[in-house]
Computed example of a mutant assay.
Amino acid sequence: MNAESKIYIAGHRGLVGSAIMRNLRTKKYGNLVYRTSAELDLRKQVEVNQFFQDEKPEYVFMAAAKVGGIISNSTYPADFIRDNLMIQTNVIDAAFRHGVKKLLFMGSTCIYPKFSPQPMKEEYLLTGELEETNEHYAIAKIAGVKMCEAYNRQFGTNFISVMPTNLYGINDNFDLKNSHVLPALIRKFHEAKMNSTPLVEVWGTGLPKREFLYSEDLADAVVHLMETYSGSDLINIGVGKDIAIKQLAEQVKEIVGYTGEIFFNTSKPDGAPRKLVEITKLKELGWEAKTPLEEGLKLTYEWFLQNLSEENLKS
């Protein structure tokens, strides 16, 4: 890519897409193209093909997806498999048909096997059963990874796939019905603090471990990979460290300033016991995360406080 390259960011208003836009602008990429979901429904093939025909992007960051936490994945499995299959199929195929030079597809480490050896290496994909609470999302994302691989093999495209670990940061989704664990904890503790609630409920035992990557770091990583890496091999993106949910809850509690108690509801699902990624390939490609978890949490909570009235904070 160069400063004049036409770059399409699919999902530019989300956690990942907005971070990619900020990173590209900081690095003086000025020819960016994007559409809201109201302007372009990526689930509709005709609209997607028309967009690629009209705009002719040279590079594509595929950050658009239907995502959510345990509750929404368990409640709406059909929505997750249908919408993600349609979105990624339309964009990947249109990128091929309209001569895109390079596309970066965003997978997720939650699509690795539930009981994968730790840390999870890229080659562990499809070596075991999936976590049942997000199986349908995972199957869709695996299909996207394999679609990029297949188009590279058959058509000689340059479509790369990355596997980010759990993400958080600016523009996260704080809706308690469909958010991930970290933004949900921030909102729960904040509201409990404001309402002087004596107890905050956290799902599960608190024992599972998760790895968390600040969204601005992810954006820096994917732009770096778009600039430097080509191939069909998956690339994990993470920090190489994880934390138990119980410790995470205590850390968020402290940053928010909540003084009540935490109740771990063990009748609720834990999800996978651990999800730490092996990041040797990423380091060899010249990139490492820069933002410590505590610093990232403080920045995210500051953003949350400044955007309390925004639509994505409403239940």
Rank of each mutant, 00 (worst) to 15 (best):
N307L: 09
G206D: 02
S179R: 04
A138R: 00
Y29N: 08
M86F: 11
P198R: 02
I243S: 01
Y229R: 08
L167W: 02
Y112Q: 08
L15C: 06
E58M: 09
L308K: 13
R274C: 10
Q251W: 08
I255Q: 07
S315D: 15
V181Q: 04
T280D: 14
S5W: 08
F212R: 00
K141W: 05
N236I: 06
T228D: 03
T291R: 02
S18E: 09
E211I: 00
V46M: 14
C110F: 15
N171V: 06
E294S: 14
E47D: 11
G17D: 05
P77T: 01
Y59W: 10
D175W: 10
K121L: 12
R43N: 06
L225K: 05
N152V: 00
P269K: 06
L276W: 12
Y112R: 08
A65Y: 01
L313G: 11
Y137T: 06
Y137Q: 05
K209Y: 08
Y8N: 09
A221D: 05
P208Q: 03
R35Y: 12
L308E: 13
F52V: 06
R210S: 02
L234H: 01
T259P: 10
K281G: 10
M194V: 12
L24V: 05
E149L: 12
R82A: 14
M226V: 00
N84R: 01
G68E: 04
L234V: 07
S196E: 13
V67M: 12
T109N: 14
M194D: 11
Y76L: 15
G296T: 05
V48E: 04
T205Q: 02
F52R: 08
F174L: 08
Y112E: 02
G286Y: 07
K241Y: 12
A65P: 01
K146L: 14
G99H: 06
I81W: 00
E250K: 04
P117N: 06
K141V: 05
N90Y: 00
E4S: 15
I186L: 11
L15P: 04
L213G: 02
P57Q: 08
L126E: 15
P77Q: 03
